[in-house]
Design a protein around this nucleic acid. Structure first.
Lengths: 149, 149
DNA sequence: ACCAATGATATGCGAGTGCTTATGATAAGC
DNA sequence: GCTTATCATAAGCACTCGCATATCATTGGT
């Protein structure tokens, strides 16, 4: 921390810098598994909870519902997710992750988190858990909560 | 933290989510002061240390040296930065922030950090400093260090 | 002196993104 | 029944960004 005179850099600046590096680290992993970044995000989301509409999924992961369709098409073609008509609403399709999707997601995640764990190991032991906890809290805030609007 | 069975979400995912919100929070502040996001980044960088070449500045802030020129032009026109020929190297120009630039940067930063402080206040007191320290450490890693390449 | 490298500059290309519009089908509300 | 809203889909538009190329002037190395 090189802040001068008790100042601190903007959170956004620090986080942005770190995210950029982490994304760069993810790229080859994702490429090796033949899945896109958004594809991986979708798999993570569906692993947590199936989606009742594509629009809802897009909203949950912060993606544009019109742009995500291509990604969903690819994931479906690769057998990583399934889309089924919702019997309760014929406009909508239920989405869930497949067994293959689970396996691929797990493989990617293991590699990504191994690298992340390496970075976390650079921190003093007493900082790790508080950092992760704080990050967990802050990352769950909605955009409205963060912006105060 | 809603991780299931001792798992944790990817750092990148958590950070990315948070950054997105923080950037959204910054937008209106920057707009109100008539400065672009990159412009603000440049001001912060020059506040820390004048630059000996535009290329060096671009590298430091992770910007593309060819794309940043427009931003520098605007900042110079607005009197926020100054570019002077380097007597030691006629290809290069020395860059530094002006008094106006300092004032504007400070005004923007105050508002941005006020919002950030509001968010930090959501954390338990014991988590704040460890979080900021850890973030400071991790954000200073180079991309090569983060990617392990 | 010559060649390679570097600085500033301009711009092309492709990919990605946010937002918008439009379509046809379906559902919800009055 | 009619109107409005929503779902999935496709695609336009403008903008940003990463990377590349090119130019001219200057500098560094041999």
């Amino acid at each position: 921390m090189t802040a001068a005179e008790g100042e601190r850099p903007d959170l956004a600046a620090m986080l942005g810098q770190l995210v950029r590096g982490l994304i760069a680290a993810e790229r080859p992993v994702l490429a090796a598994h033949g899945v896109s970044m958004w594809g991986y995000v979708v798999l993570n989301a569906l692993e947590r909870c199936p989606a009742s509409t594509q629009a809802a999924l897009a909203k949950e992961i912060g993606a544009d519902k019109t742009r995500i369709i291509g990604t969903l098409d690819e994931l479906q073609e690769a057998g990583l997710i399934a889309r089924e008509p919702d019997p309760a609403d014929r406009r909508a399709r239920l989405l869930h992750i497949t067994g293959s999707g689970r396996a691929l997601r797990a493989a990617v995640r293991d590699r990504i988190q191994a690298n992340e764990n390496r970075l976390l190991a650079l921190l003093p032991a007493g900082q790790r858990q508080p950092f992760l906890r704080a990050l967990g809290t802050l990352s769950e805030l909605s955009e409205d909560e963060i912006t105060g609007r």
